[in-house]
Amino acid sequence: MRDRATNPRRHLIPDEVETFALGLPARPRAARAHLGECAECHREVESLRALDEALSGLAHPAPSPRFAEQVMARVSLRAPWYARAWTVTRERWVPLAAASLALAATTSLMALWLTSQPELSLMSLSGLVVQQIRDFSLQVVMAIGSLLWSSSVLRSVIEASERIGTEGAILLLSALSLVTISAAGAMMRLMQPAPLRLRNAA
C-alpha cells in the first residue's frame, strides 16, 4: 500500500476509518480531503460510526444484589507487616512505650551488672548458659520418661510388642507411619486456601 503523500486517491485504511468514525484526535488533513471526495470511504466511516453507537449503547447487565457481599466474604485483605506494625504502634502507643522503656531499663541494668563483674568473661558466661539449658533439658526428658514408665499404657504397649514379635512390630510401625503421614497431609490440605468454587464447573 502506497503512502497518501504519493497516492492521494488511495482509500482510507482501517485505522484511518476508525479515527474518523470514533472522532479520535489524529485526523490528517490529506485523509480528511480524501474522505470529502470518496463516497465509498464515507460509507465505511458512517457504518463504523453507527456500529460503535449501537455497541456502546448496550447496557451493562448487573450481577445479583448480594454480589459485592459474597465477594467480600471471601476476600482477605492483609496489610504488609510494617504497615500493620505502624497501625498497632499508632493505636497502642502508651503500653508499647511503657514496655519499651521497661525493656530498655532492664537490659541497661543487666549490661551494667555484667560490666561490673570482671571475673565473668563472655565465653564463661555463654558456657554457663549452655550448661543450664543442658541440665534443664535432661531433667525434662527424665521426668517424661519416668512418667511414661510408671503409666500402665506404656507397660501394656511393651508387653503387647513382646507378644506380637518383630514382624508384628514392623507392621504396626508401618501402620502408625501411614497414619502420621495421612494426618500431616490432611493438615497441609486444611492450611491451603479454599479451592475455586464454580457451581457449573462440575
Binding site: 454480589f67 459474597q70 482477605s76 457449573n200 464447573a201
Partner: peptide
C-alpha cells in the same frame, strides 16, 4: 448468568487476594 456470576466473583476474589 449463574456461571458468569460465579466467575466474576472468583475474578474479584483473586484480584483482591
Amino acid at each position: 448468568r449463574e456461571l458468569a456470576e460465579d466467575l466474576a466473583q472468583e475474578a474479584f476474589v483473586r484480584a483482591f487476594n
